[in-house]
Design a protein around this nucleic acid. Structure first.
Lengths: 350, 350
DNA sequence: GTATTTTGCGTTAACGTTAACGCACCACCC
DNA sequence: GGGTGGTGCGTTAACGTTAACGCAAAATAC
């Protein structure tokens, strides 16, 4: 392995000069810079990250802004598990994490949490920008030297270091295809848009609709509700859906609350008669998947999104590496046959 | 962060003694050992891996034993891509990799490659034990101090450091369910056992059969061939299959050669009329998936298996960490809708 | 009794990188 | 000509861990 000592020797300078060239700290003549850069290329030098980290080690703290864990039927426990796994792994690098939770159904709560985070001395921010327009306004106030990363969703055009991208439109198309398969192309299909102002959920429905735009199937209907937290009224909606469409063969639920419909079907003795496809590997959904009241779940690795997000901050802030601006998440199809192999890697960190 | 210096101070000894205790190098009195161990616990000491790696850095070379890349329709390029990705990432740790390829259809070739590898001075071995009984015999000859890891498959009861596990039986069941869905429960289904003496392929067929053991479907038939490399005779077999079963609606191909049947169907104008499910994300399969002549592909992350295998050796040999004895691979369902998000991460290393 | 080995411990020089410090030298200004 | 400021470089002390080395004192051998 070549070291800066080798570079210094080859270029006929001291290691101090080599370091100044590498880190562009100035106070080196043009001529010397060229000589050192040539030596670096010729000897194919790469810095020893261990020596670097040994020298530079200093504790960093990252802030995480996300809804409280119990919201959206516990969906937020998934990214939180990934974040905690990353935190555990990065503890040896003196990385610490502070959570700032908010109530995603109250903008004021979001603003308060954001302000609290901005006022804390943090080395990087990991943000779930669930309230899009408010997030855009508030992220603009982040000091330009403080790096931030989005997870779960993103704000187009923002100055974020990196973000995770889920192709929700495509996942909606995939869901449509699977649901159509399950129903054998006959009967009515339904889609339930759970939070009509959520970007991902709209994209999922758009993809779902597009699959059928060629007229592949018999009819389908779309319901929506922004009242997903009130389980009583949700149940009334469920009943309306099955009563208005006696020929209903399958339904597409667009968020983690899929299990609520599946359980409703169980209670009504309709499990299996109406096929269900939904989103996210929360425990309630997994249980329904295993007992057969949910046929397929789509996962976009919410846990991994949190994990990757924190690691991205680490790589940028601590290791000073270049990072990918966009991290694409796979669209995973989960069934009772393969679920066991998806659960294990994050389960230790719930 | 606490260092051995802190430990030494607290225990009233020198850092040399602390190091002797930590690494059990002897020459320390019982009493001192206890004092140091207590200090380590009290101060919650963890070694600084950067200082350690800086001090201990020395180049290591790992050997990889696997079939030549072009065998099995290029299947082996997948794990090779993962291994190369790991190699690139680990280059900064002075990890080098040497490949030992063999012809998996000639036991003598396997033995020769194995012997060549054993005679080389290597710090660890990564082995694809495709010829099970021969592998068992030869791995017994690996010196006990030399660590080895299996990928792609494993040999039960061997002294390997670690191995990747694919649940082939379960993936066969999943394939059966998907194929049954595609065909709407009518018509005849077929399974083609491509290499009857391969463990994984047998398990896949067993799982497939088991799914239908409850009598869920109309009939299904199982064909087999050990002549998968002769494309002419394979084509004759394909023709026999479709001629013997005019009501054939779907087929399950049990290895990476799925695209051969899909292309045959294309030539015969039967693409879409007979549904196809198969294995592995080789380029030919991906092309057929995209044009619709393959409906689903099952992936057990062959690329990731190679990647994980090399990383496991690295963690054990270089970082001296404890490693998982078994690494379970997910059973991934790939369709034309989600394939794009599975290709990217390894594609740079083919 | 002296000679030799063993035990128990402290000291020290690396490993490669970083950045503070200092020292010559030159340019410029009153 | 003396002072000030800047430029271009070399030197050096860390960072935490490791293991070779050395040195007393105790144990064993003859």
């Amino acid at each position: 392995m070549t070291t800066i000592k080798d570079i210094a020797e080859k270029a006929g300078v001291s290691i101090g000069t080599v370091d100044r060239v590498i880190h562009k700290r100035g106070r080196v003549s043009e001529e010397t810079i060229r000589a050192v850069e040539k030596a670096i290329r010729d000897l194919n030098y790469t810095p020893n990250i261990f020596a670097r980290r040994l020298k530079l080690a200093k504790p960093v703290t990252f802030g995480v802004l996300m809804p409280t864990m119990d919201q959206d039927s516990g969906y937020w426990r998934l990214p939180a598990a990934g974040i905690k796994k990353a935190k555990t792994e990065l503890a040896c690098h003196q990385v610490d994490v502070r959570f700032f939770h908010f109530d995603r159904y109250r903008p004021a709560s979001f603003s308060r949490a954001f302000e609290a985070m901005l006022e804390t001395d943090l080395d990087g921010l990991l943000i779930a920008p669930v309230l899009a327009s408010l997030s855009a306004k508030l992220t603009a106030r982040i000091p330009p030297e403080r790096p931030y990363v989005f997870f779960d969703s993103t704000i187009p055009g923002s100055a974020c270091l990196s973000c995770t991208i889920q192709d929700s439109y495509q996942s909606g198309m995939l869901s449509a295809r699977l649901l159509n398969l399950l129903c054998g192309g006959i009967g009515t299909l339904a889609a339930l848009r759970m939070a009509p102002d959520d970007y991902h959920i709209n994209e999922r429905v758009r993809g779902f609709q597009h699959y059928f735009s060629g007229g592949l199937s018999s009819g389908f209907v779309i319901y929506e509700t922004d009242n997903a937290r009130d389980r009583k009224s949700l149940k009334r909606l469920f009943r309306t859906i099955i009563e208005e469409h006696s020929g209903l063969r399958g339904i597409f639920i667009t968020n983690a609350q899929t299990f609520l419909f599946a359980r409703f079907l169980e209670e009504e003795g309709l499990a299996g008669a109406i096929h269900v496809i939904g989103y996210d590997l929360i425990q309630e959904n997994i249980d329904c998947l295993k007992n057969g009241s949910i046929d397929f779940l789509i996962s976009q690795q919410s846990d991994n999104q949190g994990y990757q997000g924190l690691y991205t901050l680490f790589r940028r802030v601590v290791l000073n590496e270049a990072v990918e601006k966009e991290i694409f998440m796979p669209i995973e199809i989960i069934t009772r046959e393969n679920i066991d192999y998806y659960q294990q890697q994050w389960s230790a960190h719930v």
